[in-house]
Simulated scan of single mutants.
Amino acid sequence: MKGWMYILLCSDGSYYTGSTNNMDKRYIEHQNGKGANYTKKRLPVKLLYYEEYSRIDTAFYREKQVQGWSRKKKEALMEGKLDALPGLSKAYRDIK
């Protein structure tokens, strides 16, 4: 079963990262306030980015990975600046 990892822009300017096996249906659920509690309180939302996978479990794994990223790292991903991702993974204490 196919899966998608996606990033939404919420009305308060925050990002929401999720995964689903039906992108169209899930986006409509978010817009109608039937998605996650987080997005329900921050409507409307806008789909900014998604990745398609051949398996839903792979999309779920990717969701958990990206959820832990900083805002700047998520923005680099959405802008296709993949070469910048490793540098955005460094902790401030490691930068000298």
Rank of each mutant, 00 (worst) to 15 (best):
V66G: 04
P44I: 08
M23G: 03
R55V: 07
R62F: 06
Y38N: 08
G33M: 07
T58W: 01
Y49K: 00
S54P: 03
R26I: 00
Y27A: 00
N21C: 08
E52G: 09
R55N: 12
S54N: 13
Q31N: 12
N37H: 14
I56S: 03
T39K: 02
K25T: 00
G35C: 10
Q31L: 14
V45C: 09
K40A: 11
D57E: 14
N37Q: 12
H30V: 04
Y27D: 04
D24C: 08
Y49R: 01
K40D: 05
P44W: 04
E52F: 07
I28H: 05
I56T: 07
L47K: 08
D24Y: 04
N32Y: 07
N21L: 03
P44R: 10
L43E: 02
A59T: 03
H30K: 01
K40H: 10
Y53R: 02
Y27G: 01
Y27T: 00
G33Y: 09
K40E: 02
Y53T: 06
T58L: 14
Y38Q: 15
A59D: 04
I28K: 12
A59R: 03
D57M: 11
A36M: 05
E63R: 08
E29D: 14
E51F: 07
Y27E: 02
L48N: 01
M23L: 14
S54V: 10
R55H: 15
N22W: 00
P44M: 09
N37K: 12
R26T: 01
L43K: 00
P44E: 08
Y61K: 11
L43C: 05
H30A: 02
L43F: 06
K34W: 07
V66R: 01
E29Q: 15
L48W: 04
K25H: 02
Q67R: 12
E63Y: 04
I56N: 07
Q65K: 14
T58Y: 07
R26Q: 06
V45P: 01
E51Q: 14
E63P: 06
Y27Q: 06
P44T: 09
N37M: 06
L43D: 02
K64M: 13
Y38I: 11
Y38A: 14
S54W: 04
K46W: 06
Y27R: 02
N37V: 08
N37A: 14
P44D: 08
E63S: 05
P44Q: 06
Q67S: 10
L43V: 07
Y61N: 10
E51G: 08
Y49W: 14
S54I: 11
T39Q: 03
Y53N: 05
Q65C: 13
Y50K: 08
N21A: 12
G33C: 13
E51N: 13
I28M: 09
V66E: 00
N37C: 07
K34H: 13
